[in-house]
Design a protein around this nucleic acid. Structure first.
Lengths: 199, 199
DNA sequence: TAAAGGTGTGAATCATGGCTCACTTGTTTG
DNA sequence: CAAACAAGTGAGCCATGATTCACACCTTTA
């Protein structure tokens, strides 16, 4: 017997994988998932193409992981806003604000996560992430209905519609990299009216 | 001199091109734009691959034309609803209904037009078509604001948000090919509340 | 019918980008 | 150090599907 993986090696591997994900996300942040090629990741990380395959089974896995990482950060931020203090209306307003501000802060990434044409594997992850968002909003809408702050409605459908409204209405404004306060305010009002929040 | 295109030939060419578009749309209706290959179109029309290129400069042109044709039918239907009798609220309600019912009638096509990952060329057309939809809704929202039937708001943003809400909230339900009346009713109410229509 | 000017054809070519694999280069331990 | 075992490498392979093109076959007119 002569070789066994040590902690040092293990750490190095973790760091390498993490670095690859970082490089990959930078590419997506810059040019969307279209810019995410194994070649580019390898070059960006200063390693050979084959090495990438030591850490990811294939492009799908890499792309999906990048998507999930970036997405879960966004979801967490929105979740935090929705669970923050105040009633359903206040929470919803804050969540919309957080979603929009973060999107404006990284417009290309937001576009990549929301609307860019991507591989089916990533699209499946996107479906999942939309479901997650919808579930978050569904809870708030439900709370609002119960408390009487919101109108009676199908919480599930309204939640999906809110997610769609937020995404679609930002796609245009995201083209100009300026964080547009008016747009955000208008979107907040739209969402609040949509759930029948007491003015 | 010995040859000049006659009407007969011209007619034949028009018919051939129209037939190719028909075949192509059938493929999209069946399996989305992913199923739209030059090979498949040629086979479906019973002609050679090369012949397709006598009628379209390339795949992009063919795909874009299929998209535009299908889309303009949908837009027309919605436009008609929006220009129908009644006040802004009634028009908006009808338009939402028309959009949703038509989507449920051809779910795969609706998905292809709304959300399927497609070639950039088609995506550009999609952007245009979303703008067109948004413009249609913007007019109604504006009318409603002026007439006092709707709340004061940014008509442009609300219109985009409405389009997003309609698209996103249907994507899930479209999976099951049943025209779901409850879903449509809930969506109608959501949209009316969103623009602040008088209950 | 001959000449002119199409249209139809599909095997072959190209372009793209993921992926492999025979090999080199570490790393660990006795 | 030598043996044992991974990790690193990147030129070339491969799959997919669009596109071409040299040639055969129609249509029209003088």
């Amino acid at each position: 017997m002569a070789y066994r993986e040590t902690d040092l090696v293990r750490q190095r591997k973790v760091a390498q994988k993490s670095g690859l994900l970082h490089t990959a996300e930078a590419l997506v942040r810059e040019g969307g998932f279209a810019a995410l090629t194994i070649q580019a990741v390898a070059e960006g990380a200063g390693i050979g193409v084959g090495t990438v395959y030591r850490y990811f089974s294939g492009k799908d896995e890499l792309a999906t992981e990048v998507f999930k990482r970036a997405t879960s950060r966004e979801v967490s931020a929105v979740r935090e806003a929705l669970n923050g203090g105040g009633g359903p209306a206040a929470c919803l307003a804050t969540a919309v604000e957080v979603f929009a501000v973060r999107a404006f802060a990284a417009p290309k990434l937001a576009w990549a996560l929301i609307a860019e044409p991507v591989d089916p594997a990533v699209d499946i992850a996107r479906l999942q992430y939309r479901k997650t968002y919808t579930a978050l909003f569904e809870t708030v809408v439900q709370n609002g209905i119960v408390s009487g702050e919101f109108a009676p409605q199908s919480a599930a459908l309204s939640a999906a519609a809110l997610v769609g409204a937020m995404a679609e209405s930002l796609l245009g404004p995201l083209d100009s990299p300026v964080c547009d306060a008016d747009t955000i305010a208008a979107l907040r009002l739209f969402c609040l009216r949509a759930v029948g929040a007491r003015c």
